[in-house]
Design a protein around this nucleic acid. Structure first.
Lengths: 187, 187
DNA sequence: CAGAACATTAACCGATCGGTAAATCTTAGA
DNA sequence: TCTAAGATTTACCGATCGGTTAATGTTCTG
């Protein structure tokens, strides 16, 4: 299997797991939906968990790329960019395919913090926290680490509620809350 | 089976699902862990989903009871009670059994908003929103509904991050964020 | 064109899935 | 004490689980 074929497999597996859930999607169904035979899949991934880890790594890259690009397109200065995070979130929630966050779902199904899948999900959130902290620092906010975590809390909560109740005005409200928090952290 | 036996079954099933996940725990294992035979279980619940719904209803009652009581024990006036929500959350996160929120996990495994399990999870969050709104109203905050949703966003986000990264200082930070939001909504 | 190397398929493995039927045990009333 | 009713257990159902084996194509080299 070529490298590009493998990438395509991971991409299709990502979609299947995102839409259907990790436990709920079996390897037989995965083979059918990706168009790659089970044996071929197991040629490149020792276990289902390994495949899941690959999809999570891809999703991490995709999501953070998208977020950073979208934020940079929406705003120039770091302070406004922090707010733009929640504008971008709102756009995401409005997409009809939106079904919560891949990593929240992963940690819901693989709950043990010693599980590599759980750890990969945690690492994704850590990278986001780093990004938020960077922006908060550049924006000259006091206690950038704390502000960043508060904004991350808002982001995760907004995702959960947007998934549970539909897009509605969650993103707008999270945006307002972020604004309040950022203003309060201003010198 | 007596009513109390049934309650005991639901209570034990709740623990099993909370610890192990809904898809991951099969009915055979559930029978073993609850000490009630599979046939006996199916005498009282038509399907596994029905049993899950019963556990969610119990959990909803337990959690909201606990939260209201804890908040009332921690503070007297509604404004401080809103903050006490996050103190109580912190206590919850520190419990060794803490493994995120039953309803976030339910919505992660039953993603379709038309699924009764998903709907029950959404309803739980709605009831919390009502409670928050009530407190925000009594506290005399402007736009109590918006403040309440912002606090709910904080709560859900804090739960997700506490589960992913461990208790740490998430509750403390969410508490600080809540304080900021409440102050900003003061007349 | 022969044959080695690789990729793919279909069939199969024991275990477990959600759910059920029949047999066994317990208990209560006559 | 006999028996009928109800609860419980055992055994089983077809389907699917994650994963493997053996056979079949396919492709590249000599």
């Amino acid at each position: 299997m070529s490298a590009s074929k493998r990438d395509e497999l991971v991409q299709n597996a990502l979609k299947a797991f995102y839409d259907g859930g990790f436990h709920a999607i079996g390897m037989d169904r995965l083979a059918k939906e990706t168009g790659v035979s089970k044996t071929a899949i197991y040629k490149h991934f020792r276990t289902k968990d390994d495949l899941i880890l690959a999809t999570l790594r891809l999703r991490d890259e995709q999501f953070r790329n998208w977020l950073v690009r979208r934020v940079e397109a929406l705003a120039d200065d770091p302070r406004t960019q922090l707010l733009a995070i929640f504008t971008a979130l709102g756009e995401w929630f409005d997409e009809p395919q939106f079904k919560s966050c891949m990593f929240i779902k992963a940690s819901s199904e693989y709950q043990d913090r010693s599980d590599p899948i759980h750890q990969t999900a945690a690492e994704h959130k850590n990278l986001l926290l780093k990004y938020f902290t960077q922006l908060a620092g550049k924006a000259g906010l006091s206690r950038p680490q704390d502000v960043a975590q508060q904004l991350l809390v808002l982001k995760e909560g907004a995702i959960v509620l947007a998934h549970l109740h539909g897009p509605g005005d969650v993103a707008k409200n999270a945006h307002a809350a972020a604004k309040t928090i950022i203003q309060a952290a201003n010198d």
